[in-house]
């Protein structure tokens, strides 16, 4: 007989049970990747992926039936979070009528993440825009150049430390026609 002072368990205690989504397609995805966390944000499923697993998880997501990557963008959290940049990818599955959001983080110095272009070619322009606006490098992107700003522009406009660039209102001396 086991002694009464310790609880008898077959396996070592695992800590709080990792939350998993209910939908079978999503559940299978999250079960395969242990480092990816699942969060429910206002009725939408979000996968919090570590930076190294970004491309690997994306492959699995595509194979699970998410044929369309709707958008890739970046949020600049400045000092509010330990890692400055949050890269967000929104995915859509037409077959299962599901949406999924993948997020990962990148630090302040030389932020970079794997590019999703080999998996979904349609995010080409979106990643170029994220690079242009935030300075996040997408490794493996075939043509990472500025897309919205002129080619010789310095700085990344949507970063929080880049000012709006507003000028004081100039009143012109043009004469009014009634």
């Amino acid at each position: 007989m086991s002694d009464e002072t310790t609880t008898v368990e077959e396996t070592p205690p695992v800590g709080p049970e990792r939350p998993l989504p209910e939908h079978p397609v999503l559940r299978a995805l999250f079960e395969d990747f242990e480092t990816v966390g699942w969060v429910r944000s206002l009725g939408q499923d979000v996968a919090q992926v570590p930076n190294e697993a970004w491309a690997g998880f994306a492959h699995a997501v595509r194979d699970a039936g998410f044929e369309v990557c709707v958008d890739v963008t970046v949020v600049d959290w400045m000092r509010e979070r330990p890692e400055r940049f949050e890269i967000v990818a929104n995915l859509l599955s037409m077959a299962h009528k599901l949406r999924l959001r993948m997020t990962t983080t990148a630090g302040r110095v030389d932020p970079s993440v794997a590019s999703l272009v080999p998996i979904w070619p349609g995010v080409n322009f979106a990643e170029r825009e994220a690079y242009d606006m935030f300075g996040v490098t997408f490794e493996g992107h075939p043509d990472l150049t500025r897309i919205l700003m002129p080619d010789d522009w310095e700085g990344h406009p949507l970063r929080k430390d880049f000012g709006v660039g507003s000028v004081p209102v100039q009143f012109k001396e043009s004469h009014q026609v009634s």
Binding site: F162, V169, K172
Partner: peptide, 23 residues
Amino acid sequence: TGGMFNNYALVQGVDQVVPVDIY
């Protein structure tokens, strides 16, 4: 005058670039 977009991306008034006759 640049309109409601007083920011880095727009030229604040096309008369900075060409001479304008009528606004």
